[in-house]
Design a protein around this nucleic acid. Structure first.
Lengths: 354, 354
DNA sequence: TTGTAAGCGTTATCAC
DNA sequence: GTGATAACGCTTACAA
């Protein structure tokens, strides 16, 4: 590969001049510059990234560091997100380094390494936990980052994040169900290991309150994960006398909703919005949601805008800028929670299931 | 961040010794080594990646460089693949640099840059075209690579690749349909811009031949892409007198099959395996396939093993090794086409649509 | 406007 | 076993 030395030799100038010419400095004779640029092109010169970043320059690479959970292999949201993020990075002229973080190895290790080896300019954190140790870690490492999601204690968060407003979303679903005549609305929650889960659940409670409904613990099931646990949790609810039985069930995510749709018929019920059916809703709008039977009413995560904002924020932070352009016009569905904290609204997608 | 200098100072040795101790060289006093390792740990030392790779070492990073097409945003296969590849890279202790390649910019440019800037040890090519200029390019750049897919002229391919045997797959589907009583089997093909499309079509022809059926151009539609083109192509086929009308339709991919499923009812037909219905099959087994109505019979791409083999091959090539371990036992579904050329069999997933 | 030289953090080549 | 020192390719004071 050609280096600046090759160019310098061929041009009969010093490497300094070459470097300056190629980096668009003003103090280079226009003729010299043109010659150098020409030669660089002929030689198919590309600056060595390692040498550059060794010099303290940017790497133009950012890391996406989601947590690796056991069944990630089958995690459509992760895949969706990675794909869209790659696309967004591309548009920002950034390379995306996907660094999965296993549970086995010391969590801190990976991030220290990421910061220590200096391969990236910043990192995008995902799968935020209620109390996430990675945040203070990254802060102490002075590594620019933006989190997708937020830990609890919402009012005293100091780090930059983009989050989808799960609370408002689920509250919206409950309001919708209430408006279509439902009064006994159940909620199925996933485990609260990740922060968003509790947030969604809070939305359920808020929704009930706003609709003037009271919580009924018999209509609540926590910590569900697979079809079996859904079935187990569902049985007692459906065994209730008709007047107390839920007429609508809100699931904390599309997977639970999917299980729900599979389990309901086994108990002799059908899902849907018609009288006599049980309304079912999900969250995420995973690719399969629209193909379910009945098609799933759910809250769509605005993945594309999430990724865009995430990157805009990160780039601004890396460049030490004030506020990214994309945030100036905080349109509908985009709330500024703090200076560099963005809340996006999920979109209610009404289909046949509710 | 701590450097070897810091360690050397603290340990009272030279940086040479530190480097050797940390890199596991044999000629370091065991006591010295332990002391150094200890100090490195205390100082939370991580070797600077840039400095390393400047020194000619490996970057432990590989690039995934798919072609960016217009609707990639909605391309589930790309997302699936990226996600799984990230996972596989992780298991190989490699970082994945996702570099999308736009059509706008000079194609060659990106790869030259990738090679020139020296940020990756190798690249995984995807979306191979019948005559793919990137292959000779990468070869001339001496950049290790493995292609996912192959260009035509199968018998004189010299580069390493992993491909899913579309031809055998579709032939298998045709055989299956024939065995279930179908004699008039139509084929809907996508555009032949990417190499795999023609390969699948060849499988259709081979399948017919092996079943002793003759090709009927009235049962063939090429270059389809959206629902509209599917409808247009379908009309004349369905207008044929009953004795000449297709009883089964093989689609070149799941998207075409999806469109098919949507269009058929509009022409008064229903898809399925029952008498009187039209059998429909797809290819890819995209996430939505099992949720369609009727659930789609299709060929599943073995994405996980594809990624595993892809990486094994690439790593072997980078390390200049002979053959990666995972290929020694070329089990069922894995054919060695050449020394570093692997063909994987798609799996026929029979569901309700055929 | 241009050139010299130092330095970024490693590893490798020699000597000792 | 260990230590100087050069080299990797680039940017950037500082000089000229």
């Amino acid at each position: 590969m050609a280096t600046i030395f090759d160019i310098a030799k061929k041009a009969g100038v010093s490497i300094t001049t070459v470097s300056r010419a190629l980096n668009g400095y003003s103090d280079v004779n226009e003729n010299t510059r043109q010659m150098i640029v020409q030669i660089a092109e002929d030689l198919k010169y590309y600056p060595n990234a390692a040498a550059r970043s060794l010099q303290g320059k940017k790497t133009n690479t950012i890391a996406f560091a989601p947590l690796l959970n056991d069944h990630l292999e089958a995690e459509p949201f992760f895949k969706e997100f990675t794909g869209v993020l790659a696309l967004a990075s591309f548009k920002h002229d950034l390379s995306l380094l996907v660094t999965l973080v296993g549970q086995n190895r010391n969590l801190q290790e990976i991030y220290r390494e990421l910061a220590g080896t200096g391969r990236v300019d910043g990192v995008i954190l995902a799968d935020i936990k209620p109390q996430d140790e990675r945040i203070p870690l990254l802060q102490s490492l002075k590594m620019p980052f933006v989190a997708f999601g937020r830990s609890i204690d919402y009012d005293r968060l100091t780090y930059p994040f983009v989050d989808v407003d799960g609370k408002a979303g689920v509250a919206k679903v409950v309001a919708y169900l209430h408006s279509t005549g439902h009064h006994r609305i159940a909620y199925l929650a996933e485990s609260f290991t990740l922060a968003y889960a509790r947030d969604r659940y809070e939305g359920y409670r808020q929704g009930l309150k706003e609709a003037g409904l009271v919580e009924d613990t018999r209509l609540l099931a926590l910590n569900l994960q697979n079809e079996e646990s859904v079935a187990t949790a569902l049985k007692p609810m459906l065994d209730l006398p008709e007047a107390e039985r839920p007429t609508a069930i809100v699931a904390g995510n599309d997977y639970l909703a999917l299980h729900l749709l599979e389990v309901l018929p086994k108990f002799g019920f059908t899902a849907g919005r018609e009288p006599g059916q049980i309304a079912v809703t999900g969250f995420d709008d995973l690719p399969f949601a629209s193909f379910l039977q009945p098609a799933l009413t759910t809250l769509r995560q605005p993945i594309t805008s999430t990724c865009t904002v995430l990157l805009d924020l990160l780039v601004a932070i890396i460049k030490n800028q004030d506020k990214p352009a994309s945030l100036l016009n905080s349109g509908p569905g985009l709330t500024l929670f703090g200076p560099k904290q963005v809340l996006l609204q999920p979109e209610l997608i009404v289909r046949a299931s509710a």
